[in-house]
Design a protein around this nucleic acid. Structure first.
Lengths: 108, 108
DNA sequence: TACATTAATGCATCACTGCGCAATGATGCA
DNA sequence: TGCATCATTGCGCAGTGATGCATTAATGTA
């Protein structure tokens, strides 16, 4: 998301930020970082994707302000910078719950 | 989003629902429907996209439980069924605000 | 019935995104 | 300096999504 672009309206920015969240691997990274900062070297062994893929996801989330990072030697530590993402996920989960419940009633 | 698929975990469902929101045209439709139900024939003239495109977006949001609908004659009326989407957008906006403010400080 | 209106669908195109592999950077250490 | 580790970048591939046009479906009306 390029915040410096002059001709992007509010809705497009909203869509872009939502798009960053709308990816399973990135969501898995967020849940993993929920317990505190971790370096990519700790994250990578727990992910199924190639380290390059994980790196790109982490960088992307850092660029839009979801994650913070610091370098320590060769390692790079990431943490949740904007915990509101979990507020969003809470709402998403509630929506899913209701929708699934409704689907069940459709069948029954 | 196919809720009947047996092998989809929670994170994938969250990502799919977020992906439905992460689209400018669909967000515009949500804001437009915020004031109450509207039929596609009322919406279409206000949108830049082809009616077929708008139709697909509306159907998709209805399928995942964001919108409700009713038919009246040849017209089809849609409305916001799950207002939590606006709670999500409120959080998204707050995140964007903070991020933009931070970007400004980086430059200054 | 014939016609008009409204919405959805088939289809092709275009663009974008995620992915893995290979190569490159960057840092620390022997 | 040489080597090892960690992270990023270049690149091509495959899958997906948004779009517009043309067509079909569904309903209402003269």
């Amino acid at each position: 998301m390029n915040m410096n672009h002059p001709n992007i309206d509010k809705i497009s920015l909203e869509a872009e930020l939502l798009a960053v969240l709308a990816q399973p691997t990135r969501l898995r990274l967020l849940y993993f970082l929920r317990n505190g900062e971790r370096c990519a070297c700790e994250i990578n062994p727990k992910m199924q994707e190639d380290p390059s893929v994980v790196s790109r996801h982490l960088v992307k989330m850092q660029q839009v302000g979801i994650l913070g990072y610091r370098k320590e030697g060769v390692s790079k530590y990431y943490w949740i910078k904007d915990a509101r993402v979990f507020g969003i996920l809470k709402l998403i989960d509630a929506m899913l719950q209701d929708h699934i419940r409704e689907q069940s009633q459709m069948i029954a």
